[in-house]
Amino acid sequence: MGLSIGIDVGGTKIAAGVVGADGKIGARSHRDTPATSVDETAQAIIDAAAELIAEHKVEAVGIGAAGFVSADRSTVLFAPNLAWRDEPLGERVGAALGVPVVVENDANAAAWGEFAFGAAKDVEHMVCLTVGTGIGGGVVIDGELLRGAHGVAAELGHMRVVPGGHRCGCGARGCWEQYASGSALVREGRALAESGSLAAAQMLSVCGITDSSELSGPMITKAAAAGDPCAVELLDDLGRWLGEGLASIATLFDPSTIVIGGGVSAAKQLLVKSAQVAFEKNLPARSNRPHPSFGLAELGNDAGIIGAADLARRRESAR
């Protein structure tokens, strides 16, 4: 099969690219996301794809969107940051473009990109975490993306780790992403600064700010890379939460590789090392079972585009 288009639908930007069977992106197009309007968002997706189709012979389109996607990969059941509720997005976009369309959860699409062409391209069993504002996840078992009976499996960030803990955007308390995400990193950093901690005050100085409300995840990561003790401790705590949660994930899926991506992964070994230490410490029967390898995602912001395009290509090829 030839070319396919992958589209990554974010809360502010729609990014599309023409992707070959080798996972390489050729031409690209972008549109702003009119997140409050179902019709305008769909039209922006159509326009971004149509721009590329006008110049390339494309056989399928894959769309990665945040939220719950139906088992048939056509309907967005619910999107937390977009106005989609039971939206037949695949049918709608396909009718406008005249090509087959596959819709997939964005974290699943990114995980598949890393599995097919990135950090896990040589394995058959992997777990991928996208650690950003929250935690996205994707699981591949025996070379197949885990989607579940209703298409909404692998919402790893909403695994409950602290009963009665911090309230999550999903409505529950104590979800993993409330302790092991970029949002958690910033929350803890600001709390330390507001407590009057001298170490946190020094961190703010390294970040070039005096107001703790201006503190961001990238600032903490950069300060940690520069050796600031408070920032290093914050990332170490984040890594510990990641590792403890991943130990539970490993007991469920037994992956050969765990891939960590997303904005927080810019901390690289500062994060991965502490996560792996906590993982090894908390893995049940750790002396009597094989341990997965840890790695950083390789495809960056392109993972969702590449994964969505490849999933669409494979589905069309199988018909």
Rank of each mutant, 00 (worst) to 15 (best):
M1G: 14
I5V: 09
G10V: 13
T12R: 12
A15C: 13
G17M: 01
V18A: 01
V18C: 04
G20T: 00
G23Y: 01
G23I: 06
A27P: 01
R28W: 06
T33E: 03
T33S: 04
T36G: 13
T41F: 08
A42I: 11
I53C: 07
I53R: 11
H56G: 05
K57W: 13
V58Q: 12
A65P: 08
A66W: 04
S74Q: 15
V76L: 06
W84G: 12
E87R: 14
E87L: 14
G90E: 03
E91W: 02
E91D: 14
V93A: 11
A96E: 09
L97P: 03
L97S: 04
V99Q: 02
V101W: 05
V102I: 09
V102G: 02
E104Q: 11
D106A: 07
A110W: 03
A111W: 07
G113Y: 09
F117E: 05
G118P: 00
K121G: 01
E124V: 14
C128H: 07
C128L: 10
T130K: 09
V131I: 13
V131L: 06
G132F: 06
G134E: 05
V140H: 06
I141V: 15
D142P: 03
D142V: 08
G143R: 11
G143W: 01
G143S: 00
L145W: 10
R147V: 07
G148V: 05
H150F: 14
G151L: 11
G151S: 11
G151Q: 00
G151F: 01
A153V: 01
A154G: 12
G157W: 05
M159L: 12
R160G: 14
V162W: 01
G164C: 04
G165R: 08
C168M: 09
A172V: 12
Q178C: 15
Q178W: 01
G182P: 01
R187V: 02
E188R: 15
E188C: 13
G196N: 09
G196S: 08
S197A: 14
L198I: 11
A200G: 02
M203R: 04
L204Q: 07
S205E: 11
G208V: 08
E214T: 04
L215P: 00
L215V: 00
G217Y: 05
P218N: 11
I220E: 01
K222M: 04
A225R: 12
A225K: 15
P229M: 12
D236V: 04
W241N: 15
L242H: 01
G245N: 03
L246F: 06
I249Y: 01
T251F: 04
D254A: 15
T257D: 12
V259C: 02
G261E: 02
G261P: 10
G263Y: 06
V264N: 09
S265F: 09
A266M: 11
K268T: 14
V272Q: 05
K273L: 13
K273H: 12
A275S: 15
Q276K: 14
V277S: 08
V277P: 00
F279T: 10
E280S: 04
E280V: 14
P284V: 15
A285F: 15
N288R: 11
S293F: 07
G300L: 09
G300R: 02
G300S: 06
D302Q: 11
I305Q: 01
I305P: 00
R315L: 10
S317D: 12
S317C: 10
R319W: 02
